[in-house]
Amino acid sequence: MADLQRWAHELGFSQIGVADIDLHSAEAGLLAWLQAGFHGSMHYMQSHGLKRARPAELVPGTLRVLSLRMDYLPQDSAPDWQTVEWQRLNDPQRAQVSLYARGRDYHKVLRARLQQLATRLSDAVGPFGYRVFTDSAPVLEVELAARSGIGWRGKHTLTLHRDVGSMFFLGEIYIDLPLPLSEPVTAHCGQCTACLDACPTGAIVAPYRVDARRCISYLTIEHEGAIPLELRSLIGNRLYGCDDCQLICPWNKFAQKSRLADFDARPAMASGDLLAFWSWDETQFLRQTEGSAMRRIGHARWQRNLAVVSGNALRQRDWPELRAVLQTLRPAASELLAEHLSWALAQAPARPTTSATPPATAAD
């Protein structure tokens, strides 16, 4: 295990643990969540059924799961990064991108390094059966992380570690080797409900239970249709994803900066310039998001999200340049985008009509 830890560290991971594959105690919760419809339009979650909680059915022969943590807080993050992020969320000229998505696509980063780790293990012990996962298949990664000692499931359903918070990615390697199991850690959320209270849309409907249909990350990334009217104003300036439940979490004062430059923010994403984002046609969108997790939503959903952010910006201040952009785009927009543009324009406060009586001057 010491060699595995060393190899993982050399590849940029911060922690590794070994989990058993008996997840039967998690099956009831998974079924209840699906039956409540909390997965929204993510039908793949239901189609896989309980295979998500049965690793040996997903990958026959699996005996253990290696669970790994990779921190993603950008290397140039300020000591008070949580305060900085809250300030950005209150800036109507910004279109806020979730911290994890401002750099390189984590799927690409983790998958390649998980594969390298599996290769090193194979070189040491001989050929064995394995399969790597990075949020790419029906895997109960938080449950596995909890059982492997990576952390505990927080009330926001993310994995928490008392020494590093929750600003990290998880990756798994299903293996057919009977490695010694890691010790789980105890939970330390206590009576805290900060994440539930901070959720802008009330998506954390109860401790450890999220209704994806109300979650801003789901709405801006997974959801393909119109953003529900009653939720648009609650999205604020969140263009892609949402970090609020992590920003408010007291354990994230211990969040660790990434050991890799891959997750450093790209300049455009760091600036979050709302008007500049509107200037991206599809070609530029694809160029700017190359190698980024954001590319997966496509230009149409990108513009839909921009329209919602723009409406919320116009509600806070008169912004003639932004109104002009929306008005110019609306005639040729798709039905979906046109409806969101119209909604956004309707959020602007009514401008007073010009009075025939000139305003009083100091001389008067």
Rank of each mutant, 00 (worst) to 15 (best):
R6V: 13
Q15N: 13
Q15M: 09
A19F: 06
D20I: 08
D20W: 10
I21C: 07
D22H: 10
H24L: 12
A28C: 00
W33Q: 03
W33E: 09
L34N: 04
G37Y: 11
M42I: 11
H43V: 14
Y44G: 13
H48N: 07
H48A: 14
G49T: 03
A53C: 09
R54V: 08
P55I: 13
T62R: 00
R64T: 07
L66K: 02
Q82I: 12
N90F: 03
R94E: 14
R94P: 03
A95P: 00
D105K: 02
D105G: 01
H107G: 00
R113I: 02
Q115K: 08
A118S: 00
L121E: 09
D123R: 10
A124H: 13
A124K: 04
A124Y: 12
V125N: 04
G126T: 09
P127D: 14
Y130L: 01
F133D: 02
S136W: 05
S136C: 05
E143S: 07
S148T: 06
G149A: 09
G149M: 12
G151A: 12
R153P: 03
G154S: 08
G154Q: 05
M167L: 15
F169H: 01
I173A: 03
S182N: 09
V185C: 09
T186R: 09
G190D: 14
C192Q: 10
P200W: 14
T201M: 04
V205W: 13
V205T: 15
A212N: 04
C215T: 07
I216P: 00
S217G: 07
S217N: 07
Y218N: 08
L219H: 02
T220F: 03
G225L: 11
A226K: 00
S233R: 15
L234I: 02
L234F: 06
R238I: 06
G241N: 04
C242A: 11
C242M: 08
L247Q: 03
P250S: 12
N252Y: 06
K253E: 15
F254Y: 15
A255R: 01
K257T: 08
A265I: 07
A276H: 13
A276L: 14
W278G: 02
S279D: 15
T283W: 07
F285Y: 10
E290H: 09
M294W: 04
H299D: 12
R301V: 01
W302A: 05
N305E: 12
N312K: 06
A313R: 01
R315F: 10
P320C: 11
R323K: 12
R323M: 14
A324M: 09
V325W: 10
T328V: 07
L329R: 05
A332Q: 14
S334G: 07
H340L: 06
S342G: 11
A346V: 03
A348M: 06
P349E: 14
R351I: 13
S355C: 14
S355G: 03
A356V: 11
P359W: 13
T361A: 08
D364G: 09
